[in-house]
Design a protein around this nucleic acid. Structure first.
Length: 494
RNA sequence: GGCGGCGUACCCAAGCGGCCUAAGGGGACGGUUUGCAAAACCGUUAUUCGUCGGUUCAAAUCCGACCGCCGCCUCCA
């Protein structure tokens, strides 16, 4: 079975056929950098990270572009209100570019912690002002846009396909529109390509229409075209951007180029808190950093970034996910369970007897892999994919109890964990941060000394002393576990 | 008002016409193991999928109505 994905444009599950054999151009709408990234960003970019990773697993050479919006757009409606980055800049008494710089850094930091692969290109909107002006000019020249008083608007009535992505038509929208009519526009549905800047607007550029700044929708069209071409395979983003943002991107791009802009539109759904969308505007968001440090009243503890990732993968990307501390705690427990098994497995490879890998285990692994691949090919069903990892955990634990299991058998399982759990899902790291290996040698030695002291106390039936040692270590985040055969292992439990 | 989506066990969540008397995780309870823990293992926890109808040999899955919740139509992941 090949890859099938849900295309928002056609509202159907479609076979994935790239424009060019073996290559995929993928553009994902990035964040506007005026605040710390929150759990919603996590769901968004983990979702697309998985898609990129899966395409690469399938052998495609993927060019992954994800922009950074560092020009503030407007806080209330399309034609008035304040630039959000400028607003934050005033608040922090910094230059808008300093704000963008700082939150861009924070975004990358948190995405790295979530184990998202970096985009191949992270273009900034401010780095593409000439190209944006060029596109506006093209649209004016072709008669799709008009200038009024230093601002340029796209004339929606000139573009027949407007509404094809979101399934709306202009008349219906106007009936219930919440937007105040802007007198400059020919029609309320028209949208700004270029806005005239007032003198006190910090971010502004020269243009054929005077000093101004670009409209929000413009950057994605421009950067997508510049780095991936006039028609791209995949464009991703949040469902809330389906309209107007993506609809406007299509109108601009197709009007200018005369060819289809995007073949497959992929939209992920929102993260909610108590059933309400989590958003910067709503102020109900929990930042990723707060989750990783436990610094939020809604959280009972700090969570592993990869446990957050696992929580996100636990549901389908097109479904809303209601966030709760309990759900995250459950994901953390599940993550720990996989981590325990994988670490035990890797430790065992060293001491297990040599010999050929067990054929029946290899067959089980193949069956698991097939199930995993089918699930991922079915519109990226990560929930099933994660469940396959748990099946592998079961196999692992079963074999760990059998002293005859060979190192080759364990190696085969580890390879599959690395491939599916690591390369694809990104929830099984190459090396666990707190694993008793490598640079933790000294700690391993010291804890080993304590384990010996405790073993001695236990031999003397001095359980008070042995329990004291265990409690003491536990208070410092080190858990001792007595395994069958008189072996005691340790692990960290922050 | 228009457009879209969701409602599955105590919680999260997959399944989208027959292999479903419904994956997987968490939790809870019982058992094995253990000096005690921890971890692991075994077992139990939805004859039922918001409600009511309909289509079908067959429905959680399709259709209709109703109830509840959410998103978009203003910036937003």
């Amino acid at each position: 079975m090949g890859l099938r994905l849900y295309n928002t444009l056609t509202r159907e599950l479609e076979d994935f056929v790239p424009l060019e054999i073996g290559r995929v151009g993928m553009y994902v709408c990035g964040p506007t950098v005026y605040g710390p990234p929150h759990l919603g960003h996590g769901k968004s970019y983990v979702s697309f990270d998985i898609i990129v990773r899966w395409l690469r697993y399938l052998g495609y050479a993927v060019a992954y572009v994800q922009n950074i919006t560092d020009v503030g757009h407007l806080t209330d409606d399309a034609d008035s209100g304040e630039d959000k980055i400028a607003k934050q800049a005033k608040k922090e008494m910094k230059h808008p570019m300093a704000i963008a710089e700082y939150y861009t850094w924070m975004f990358f930091r948190d995405m790295d912690r979530l184990n998202c692969v970096r985009p191949d290109i992270s273009p900034r909107a401010t780095g593409h002002i000439p190209e944006q002006i060029e596109l506006v000019q093209t649209l004016v020249d072709k008669g799709y846009a008009y200038e009024v008083n230093g601002s340029v608007y796209f004339d929606v009535s000139k573009f027949a396909g407007y509404g094809k992505l979101s399934g709306r038509n202009v008349e219906e929208m106007q009936a219930g529109a919440r937007v105040e009519v802007n007198s400059e526009k020919h029609s309320p549905a028209d949208f700004a390509l270029w806005k005239k800047a007032e003198a006190n607007h910090v971010m502004q550029w020269n243009s054929p229409w005077g000093k101004g700044y670009p409209g929000w929708h413009l950057e994605c069209s421009v950067m997508s075209m510049k780095y991936l071409g006039k028609t791209i395979d995949i464009h991703g983003g949040g469902i809330e951007n389906q309209f107007p943002h993506h609809e406007c991107e299509i109108a601009q791009s197709e009007a200018a180029n005369g060819v289809q802009f995007v073949k497959y539109w992929l939209h992920h759904n929102m993260m909610t808190v108590n059933g309400q969308k989590m958003g910067k505007s709503l102020g109900n968001f929990i930042t990723l950093d707060q989750v990783f440090t436990g610094q939020h009243t809604a959280l009972s503890r700090a969570y592993d970034p990869l446990a957050v990732r696992q929580l996100i993968l636990n549901s389908h990307y097109r479904m809303t996910m209601d966030f709760s501390d309990a759900a995250l705690a459950a994901a953390q427990s599940g993550y720990d369970r996989i981590a325990e098994a994988v670490q035990a497995l890797r430790n065992k490879i060293v001491s297990a007897p040599t010999g050929a890998a067990d054929k029946s285990v290899l067959a089980e692994l193949d069956a698991a892999k097939a199930k995993f691949e089918d699930a991922m090919n079915d519109d990226f069903n990560t929930a099933i994919a994660v469940s396959v990892l748990f099946e592998m955990v079961k196999i692992t634990n079963r074999l760990l109890e059998n002293p005859k299991t060979t190192a080759e058998t364990f190696k085969a399982i580890d390879v599959q964990f690395r491939r599916l759990g690591g390369d694809v899902l990104g929830i099984v790291p190459e090396v666990y941060p707190h694993a008793a290996t490598a640079d933790n040698d000294l700690l391993d030695y010291l804890v080993g000394q304590m384990i010996q002291k405790r073993a001695e106390a236990r031999r003397n039936k001095d359980f008070a002393a042995s329990d004291a040692i265990r409690k003491d270590l536990e208070a410092r985040g080190i858990v001792l576990e007595d395994k069958p055969g008189g072996v005691t292992t340790w692990r960290r439990n922050k």
